[in-house]
Write a protein that binds this DNA or RNA. Structure first.
Length: 467
DNA sequence: TGAAATGTTGGGGCG
DNA sequence: ACGCCCCAACATTTC
């Protein structure tokens, strides 16, 4: 469990108080989303058990993180504080101030990097600025920067203080939904915690990695690692994944192409953090400011249809329903649904960002905001705005047997492949045979694809001439 | 990590 | 045999 702060504290040989703070009060913070709260609850339970096995104990506190930490320091008389860095702009500001304050009170502070392969400030272009394009950024990281550290083993043992400070009760935090318990099925899909993370990693390398290059694009195939939420919660470190991937390439050179692609996905994650660090307004403002003049539409009905998987485009609806049911969506489909919202509906990418933030178990400020801007065309090294995904073509290309759509849009299960991605094209007798009444059992499309496409291109034309 | 429109080529049907 | 057209298949360009 590559956790530098914990390892450093344990290695000091002194008693260690292991503290988790649920901070919902620091200004500028994005309140943790509903699906993420579910994950956090499970993750903390697992962490608590892991620590118990090492002879330690997890202390839970809630509040403004800086205030809580100072309080615990004074309660325990701690001489040193170890933490792993966070990279959200509000957290950087908070922790910088806190570090200085603790030092003036004679408390030593050691901060570590637990969550990135490369610190976001390390990679620089020849002119000294941050990279704005992924490929040169990643080339620079891999070829010119020192290699990422190898992961640390979990500490063998952790000394515990004679008097444990009071801990809050995890259940009192009410992180899990109750009425209704919409996360009831999450447990079938996910096993939060370090053990669940290593199991996913091994499964990926034994079953999926060799074919990752192609299978990763097929949402009906279990071709991705599914590690994103584990990574976000620090249950597995990118260094662990990176070095395991390297080891696999050495052992099976024929997998090199696929594994490099996989490692590049870690690279996109690094790039998102790099961007967030250097352009901290990315979560709320266009990276390319010409998009400030884009004619986004107000469309509450369309937004709602999108959120609930009722757009009438089966590929889009399957994605949105997978998100709702499992707290996660396949990456290929994230691009399709995001393109649909930002382009077919011309709804501001921030609406999509907010919905994903609330519904994804892997919601991550850096990745979520950079990715939404990437799809919307307003971001760094973004897909050009005119790159508009056709939800029908994307379906026939990446879900050729319709497994994905049939799983998440079961009312269309009986439709033949040919009409599965555009049921409105199906002749009456085919619909009848499949037991579908369009507009009743499944919605008619809320927009016409080619008209929506033209409308989006017109909108783009407006800001293009302006720039 | 697109799609659609437009351009080019070459085989085959046909008068 | 030839020119003409059609159109798939592929390539290029434009959005």
């Amino acid at each position: 469990m590559d956790n530098p702060a914990l390892s450093a504290a344990a290695a000091s040989g002194r008693p260690v108080v292991v503290l988790y703070i649920l901070d919902e009060e620091t200004p500028g913070e994005w309140q943790i989303g509903a699906a993420s709260r579910w994950w956090l609850h499970q993750s903390l339970e697992a962490l608590s058990a892991d620590l118990g096995a090492l002879g330690s104990q997890l202390l839970l506190r809630r509040g403004h993180a800086a205030d809580v930490l100072k309080k615990v320091v004074s309660e325990t008389g701690a001489a040193t504080v170890f933490w792993n860095r966070l990279y959200e702009p509000y957290a950087i500001a908070r922790d910088k101030e806190l570090k200085a304050e603790l030092k003036t009170h004679g408390v030593e502070v050691h901060s570590s990097n637990a969550s990135l392969l490369f610190e976001p400030w390390v990679s620089k272009t020849k002119t000294g600025g941050p990279y704005r394009v992924f490929s040169p950024f990643w080339r620079n990281c891999l070829r010119e920067l020192p290699q990422p550290d190898h992961p640390l083993p979990a500490p063998k043992t952790i000394n515990r203080p004679t008097m444990a400070p009071d801990t809050e009760n995890l259940d009192d935090w009410a992180l899990c939904p109750t009425k209704p318990d919409w996360a009831v099925n999450f447990g079938e899909v996910w096993s939060p915690g370090t053990q669940g993370a290593s199991e996913r990693l091994s499964r990926f390398f034994s079953e999926a990695a060799s074919d990752y290059k192609d299978a990763r694009n097929q949402p009906g195939v279990d071709g991705t690692s599914g590690l994103s939420p584990h990574l976000h919660y620090g249950e597995i470190s990118p260094r662990h994944i990176f070095w395991e991937a390297r080891r696999q390439v050495d052992a099976r050179p024929e997998m090199a192409k696929s594994i490099d692609k996989f490692i590049a996905e870690l690279g996109w994650r690094e790039f998102a953090y790099h961007l967030l660090y250097h352009y901290p307004h990315i979560p709320h403002a266009n990276y390319q400011d010409k998009f400030d003049d884009f004619p986004w539409r107000e469309d509450p009905e369309g937004l709602r249809a999108w959120q609930h998987g009722m757009t009438g485009y089966p590929m889009v609806d399957a994605g949105m329903r997978q998100l709702w049911q499992t707290g996660w969506m396949h990456n290929r489909v994230r691009m399709i649904v995001a393109s649909f919202l930002a382009k077919h509906l011309m709804v501001h990418w921030r609406e999509g960002e907010a919905w994903f933030w609330d519904t994804l178990v892997d919601a991550d400020l850096a990745a979520n905001s950079a990715s939404w801007q990437w799809v919307a065309g307003s971001g760094a090294d973004a897909a050009p705005y005119f790159r508009i995904f056709n939800p029908i073509t994307q379906g026939t290309k990446f879900d050729p047997d319709g497994d994905y759509v049939r799983k998440f849009v079961p009312e269309l299960a009986q439709l033949p492949d040919r009409y599965l991605f555009s049921p409105w094209d199906a002749p009456d007798d085919v619909l009848k045979e499949a037991g579908i009444v369009l507009g009743t059992d499944y919605p008619m499309p809320i927009v016409n694809h080619s008209e929506a496409r033209e409308r989006a291109l017109d909108g783009y034309g407006e800001i293009k001439k302006a720039s």
